[in-house]
């Protein structure tokens, strides 16, 4: 009897949470602070850092990367939506190779506001699938978890700034890796330009130590929605 009450209470709580997140109304596409963002972009980056050679030697390396990216962030409900990103490109290092990544996340919009500067904050939790990063780890495909955050500011109807951050811990065969990805952009009407930086950290080897790669480069894109 007692167990049954607990079950009903839990189900009611979960239902209440879903109702709060989904809200009673859709995000309006015309709303300047709406959180949906569909975009196409190209991104090039220079990389420099330390890769592992042998059992545990830090070897400096550098290279470049070039990608085409498609991102869709959509909110069918007021507070709850999804974020999908796919990218395909080339990475030019001594292990120069093709790169492909797909990531998806359940997205929440805990804050959106109107004022002199409209804006919103989106948080997401999900996962991704792609080749191991950085490329010196090898060319195995791997799945990994993802957390993301995006801040959008709209000072005018035709001007948009957004900054997004992604954290992807990737567990390679030996040790553990994580990537921190930060993108800051500013745009006018449908177009935007920005700068994207990434830090790939891998802790492994004998002795165990940090192998860090920095990426930095411009990004240019088109906001579809």
């Amino acid at each position: 009897m007692h167990e049954g009450r607990r079950f009903i209470g839990g189900a009611a709580g979960a239902l209440a949470l879903v109702c709060i997140l989904t809200g009673t109304e859709d995000a309006r596409a015309g709303d300047p602070s709406h959180v949906a963002l569909w975009r196409l972009e190209v991104h090039g980056a220079y990389l420099q850092g330390d890769q592992r050679l042998g059992a545990g030697t830090l070897a400096p390396y550098n290279g470049w990367g070039f990608w085409g990216r498609v991102g869709i962030s959509e909110f069918p409900w007021k507070w709850l939506g999804y974020d999908v990103l796919a990218q395909i490109g080339m990475v030019g290092t001594p292990q120069s190779t093709f790169d492909v990544v797909t990531e998806g996340a359940v997205a929440f919009a805990p804050a959106r506001w109107k004022g002199s500067v409209d804006g919103s904050i989106v948080l997401g939790v999900g996962g991704g699938f792609g080749f191991e990063r950085p490329v010196w780890l090898g060319r195995g495909a791997t799945g990994y978890p993802l957390v993301l955050a995006r801040l959008t500011l709209l000072p005018k109807k035709s001007i948009r700034f957004f900054a997004s951050f992604r954290f992807t811990p990737i567990t390679p065969e030996d040790g553990w890796g994580r990537a921190y990805d930060l993108e800051v952009t500013g745009g006018y009407k449908w177009w935007y330009l920005g700068l994207r930086g990434r830090i790939d950290d891998v802790t492994q080897g004998d002795p165990e130590r940090l192998y860090r790669t920095y990426w930095l480069g411009p990004t240019a894109g088109l906001v579809i929605r």
Binding site: G54, A55, G56, A59, P60
Partner: peptide, 15 residues
């Protein structure tokens, strides 16, 4: 001018 920083701190004994 990237040149390997050839100090033993960066090299494993095993290498």
């Amino acid at each position: 001018g990237i040149d390997p920083v050839r100090v033993s701190d960066r090299v494993s004994t095993r290498d």
